[in-house]
Design a protein around this nucleic acid. Structure first.
Lengths: 166, 166
DNA sequence: TCACGAAACCGGTATATGCCACTATTATCA
DNA sequence: TGATAATAGTGGCATATACCGGTTTCGTGA
């Protein structure tokens, strides 16, 4: 560790990527949440409904199994299940067992869920436009690309292998 | 909205910054957590202990009041209180009421907490070094700077005002 | 076909995080 | 000084997220 690194370590935790991402996540949750609050949905719920909406349109029908959804959201399967509970209770999502493989269940938006997703999408556009305008469209796109790399399975595998050569 | 934007919106949620940050946060929680697991601390706990360690060394004594800690962590005050509960229960942190203003409480690491923080810091360095090596030191620093801007109070205020001129 | 291992999901438990209502304390001002 | 507003925390409730163990179902090979 260099002297500069040591100084940075003393100055604060700005140099910890994990900390930085968490703080930003809490902040964005507040900012986007304020805008989309009228829907009554939380950020994770809105994101989940939107993911379901998109996944339903994809060619691969496996995209909507809980297993694949969890992987796509970089989320634990059981965490997804718990998060789905309130959405199912409120009639936005339904779980459909697969006929061929009875272990598998697919999540699907109900009509009510489609409407709620659309309602949230309209508000989301406001928040997103405001973010892009404020942060800069190019910078925002670059930030999302960087975060996508971090969240990717490839990155996780390389990290767990302890790769240093990228 | 341009045609390209509409296409991007259909392609996926990669263009949602809120989604991108949350996914990355979950992933980093996994990756850093795997490395620091031997301490028995979660990522938020490790981060909190480290923040307390640093805040204790700062000139401003107000830096350790729950109110200021919450603001620094971009966290709700009550959320901070809840998160502190297990750490207090396990003897890593103690709350010290202020003599002058009896409403105020300060959070402080105990000896046991200092030791645990140091233990976590050593492991954290491994995770952080691996991340930097894999993602690129320059790119990692740039990512943290971008996230710090997003998390800043100035950004939040501008967002809430609806500024578009930055 | 039967035993066994793998896969998908569920439920319990614990922490993370936020909102709201409430209490205690302090500051303000008529 | 006394009423009122503001501030700092606490506790309750709800969702977010993860880990682990258990159950059902599937696939595989003897």
């Amino acid at each position: 560790m260099t002297a500069a690194d040591a100084a940075a370590e003393l100055r604060g935790w700005d140099h910890c990527t994990n900390t930085a991402v968490r703080r930003a996540a809490r902040r964005l949750g507040q900012l986007y949440g304020d805008v989309t609050a009228p829907t009554g949905l939380t950020s994770p719920q809105q994101i989940l409904l939107s993911h379901l909406k998109l996944a339903a349109g994809w060619a691969d029908p496996a995209a909507t199994t809980l297993q694949h959804l969890a992987a796509a959201m970089v989320m634990d399967l059981s965490a997804l299940g718990h998060t789905l509970k309130p959405l199912i209770r409120d009639g936005y999502v339904e779980l459909v067992p697969d006929a061929r493989d009875r272990r598998v269940k697919r999540a699907r938006l109900t009509e009510k869920g489609e409407a709620k997703q659309a309602e949230g999408l309209a508000l989301w556009r406001v928040a997103q436009a405001r973010f892009n305008a404020l942060f800069g469209p190019e910078e925002a796109a670059a930030l999302r690309r960087a975060l996508a790399v971090v969240a990717s399975d490839e990155f996780a595998e390389a990290f767990r292998r302890g790769d240093v050569s990228s």
